[in-house]
Design a binder for these strands. Structure first.
Lengths: 149, 149
DNA sequence: TCGCAAATGAAGCCTAGGCTACACTTTTGT
DNA sequence: ACAAAAGTGTAGCCTAGGCTTCATTTGCGA
C-alpha cells in the first residue's frame, strides 16, 4: 500500500509522489470531520450539524454533505434531525488522527515553531505524514524527552 | 495576511485554521506546476505539456488545463503548440517553492525520516508550511549543522 | 399548547481538477 | 515530400467540496 509498482522510467517516482499527495488530500475531509465529530460527541454526547459547520468554518449544507459522505463511507451514522455519531471505524480513524495530530504539533513545537503557527500548520501537514514519518517523529520526541527530562 | 480578524467566539480560531488549510490546499496546484515547469525549462530550455503531464502523473489535458490556470494567474506564458515558460512572478514562486521544499526535506531527514518517505511526504506537507514555521525549520537546521559540522 | 425561531434537509449552482474521445498541428523518418 | 507518429488543443463528462435559497421539522418559551 506504500510502494505502487515502479513505472517505465525514473519519472515514475516523481509522478508517484504527486499521486500520493493527491490521495492524502482526498482523505483530509474524512479525517477532519471524524475527529471533529469525535470531539463533539465526547464533549456534548452528540454532534450537531450546525455546530460541526461552525467549528469547521463552513455553512451547514456543506457540513451536511460531508456527513453524508462519512455515512456513505461507513464512518458515521445519523437519523434525520438528530445528532451525528461515529461508527467503530469512524472512532478508530478519529483516534489515530488525533494521535497523529498531537505528535505533529509536538514535533513542530520541539523544533521551535510558535504555538499558534504549529497548530495551524499541523492542521494541513498532518494528512501527509506517512507511517514511516510518524514513527520517526515519535522516536525523535522520545529522544528529546530523554535528553531533557 | 496571517491572522484573519478574530471571530465571535473561540470556535473562530479553530475555523480559521481549517480555512487556512483549505487556502493552502488551493495553492498546491499552482506551486507544484510552477516548480515543475521551472525544472524543465532549466533542464531542456522549455517545458512541454506532455512532459509536464508525465512527471505530474496526470493526462495531458489535465496538465494543459493547469497551465491555462497558470496563464490566467499571470505565472506562465505559452503559444499554441509551443513550450511553456514562466513569467517573472512564476519564476519567483518556483524559487521560493523549491527552497521551501528543500528545507522541509532536510528537516525530515534530520529527524530520521527515511529518504523515500521524506521526499513523498514533503511533497504534500510543504504547502502547509507557513513563514513562521519555515523560519523555525531554518534555525533548527543551522543549529544541527553547528553541533555536527 | 401552540407559534415562532432555530436547526436540518433538499435542490441547484459554481469552480477545481481529474478523465476520455476526438480534432488538428508539428515533427520525423523514409 | 509526405505520410505516419507524436504532441497539443478542445469538448464534454465526472466527483468533490464550497455556496445560496427555500422547505420542513424540532423544540422552547410565552
Amino acid at each position: 500500500m506504500q510502494q505502487p509498482p515502479p513505472q517505465d522510467s525514473d519519472s515514475g517516482a516523481q509522478a508517484d509522489r504527486f499521486n500520493q499527495a493527491r490521495t492524502a488530500k482526498a482523505m483530509t475531509l474524512l479525517e477532519d470531520y471524524t475527529e471533529m465529530i469525535d470531539d463533539l460527541v465526547q464533549a456534548h454526547g452528540e454532534a450537531r450539524i450546525t455546530e460541526i459547520a461552525h467549528l469547521m468554518g463552513v455553512t451547514h449544507p456543506t457540513a451536511a454533505k460531508a456527513v453524508a459522505r462519512l455515512k456513505r463511507e461507513g464512518l458515521a451514522v445519523s437519523r434525520p434531525y438528530r445528532g451525528v455519531f461515529l461508527t467503530e471505524a469512524g472512532s478508530a480513524m478519529a483516534a489515530s488522527v488525533r494521535a497523529r495530530h498531537r505528535i505533529v504539533v509536538d514535533v513542530l513545537l520541539a523544533l521551535g515553531v510558535p504555538a499558534e503557527a504549529a497548530e495551524t500548520d499541523a492542521e494541513g501537514m498532518e494528512h501527509h505524514v506517512s507511517e514511516a514519518t510518524l514513527a520517526a517523529f515519535e522516536a525523535f520526541l522520545r529522544r528529546k524527552d530523554q535528553s531533557a527530562p
